[in-house]
Amino acid sequence: MTGRIDRIDHIGVVCLSLDEAVEFYRSTYGFELRHVEVIESQGVREAVMAIGTAADDRAPYVQLLQPTRQDSAVSRWLERRGPGLHHIAFGTDDVRTAAACLEERGVVPVIDPPGTGSRGTQVTFLHPRDCLGVLTELVAPPQDRAASEAAPARH
Results as ranks from 00 to 15, higher is better:
residue 72 S to A: 10
residue 56 D to R: 11
residue 83 P to M: 11
residue 42 Q to Y: 07
residue 64 L to S: 10
residue 132 L to M: 12
residue 73 A to R: 09
residue 149 E to V: 15
residue 134 V to K: 06
residue 31 F to E: 01
residue 69 R to M: 05
residue 127 H to L: 03
residue 66 Q to I: 11
residue 43 G to W: 02
residue 67 P to W: 02
residue 148 S to R: 14
residue 84 G to T: 12
residue 140 A to E: 09
residue 1 M to E: 13
residue 18 L to F: 04
residue 63 Q to L: 15
residue 89 A to K: 07
residue 74 V to A: 07
residue 150 A to R: 09
residue 2 T to W: 02
residue 147 A to R: 13
residue 106 G to V: 10
residue 105 R to A: 13
residue 95 V to I: 14
residue 13 V to D: 13
residue 83 P to F: 06
residue 26 R to C: 05
residue 120 G to Q: 10
residue 45 R to E: 13
residue 122 Q to H: 08
residue 8 I to N: 01
residue 122 Q to I: 15
residue 110 V to Y: 00
residue 79 E to P: 04
residue 57 D to C: 12
residue 141 P to Y: 14
residue 125 F to H: 03
residue 84 G to L: 11
residue 25 Y to A: 08
residue 13 V to E: 12
residue 7 R to W: 01
residue 67 P to E: 05
residue 108 V to G: 01
residue 17 S to R: 10
residue 138 L to E: 02
residue 102 L to F: 00
residue 72 S to V: 11
residue 23 E to C: 10
residue 6 D to G: 14
residue 51 I to R: 00
residue 27 S to W: 09
residue 81 R to W: 09
residue 84 G to F: 10
residue 138 L to S: 04
residue 96 R to S: 11
residue 62 V to W: 03
residue 16 L to D: 14
residue 53 T to N: 01
residue 148 S to M: 08
residue 155 H to P: 09
residue 150 A to H: 11
residue 32 E to L: 06
residue 126 L to C: 02
residue 73 A to N: 09
residue 134 V to P: 08
residue 105 R to G: 07
residue 48 V to D: 01
residue 103 E to S: 14
residue 35 H to F: 09
residue 50 A to M: 05
residue 80 R to H: 12
residue 56 D to C: 13
residue 74 V to F: 05
residue 146 A to N: 05
residue 77 W to Q: 15
residue 87 H to T: 07
residue 144 D to S: 12
residue 36 V to K: 14
residue 44 V to T: 13
residue 72 S to N: 08
residue 112 D to Y: 00
residue 49 M to E: 03
residue 73 A to D: 15
residue 136 T to E: 01
residue 150 A to T: 14
residue 14 V to H: 09
residue 54 A to P: 00
residue 140 A to Q: 07
residue 143 Q to M: 11
residue 15 C to H: 11
residue 118 S to E: 07
residue 3 G to D: 05
residue 49 M to V: 06
residue 65 L to K: 08
residue 10 H to A: 05
residue 4 R to T: 13
residue 5 I to H: 00
residue 10 H to P: 12
residue 12 G to N: 05
residue 155 H to G: 12
residue 12 G to F: 03
residue 8 I to C: 02
residue 127 H to M: 02
residue 135 L to D: 08
residue 35 H to M: 07
residue 128 P to T: 07
residue 99 A to E: 02
residue 28 T to W: 11
residue 22 V to W: 04
residue 74 V to N: 06
residue 65 L to Q: 09
residue 16 L to Y: 03
residue 64 L to P: 14
residue 19 D to S: 13
residue 18 L to T: 10
residue 17 S to E: 09
residue 69 R to F: 03
residue 77 W to M: 12
residue 118 S to F: 11
residue 25 Y to L: 09
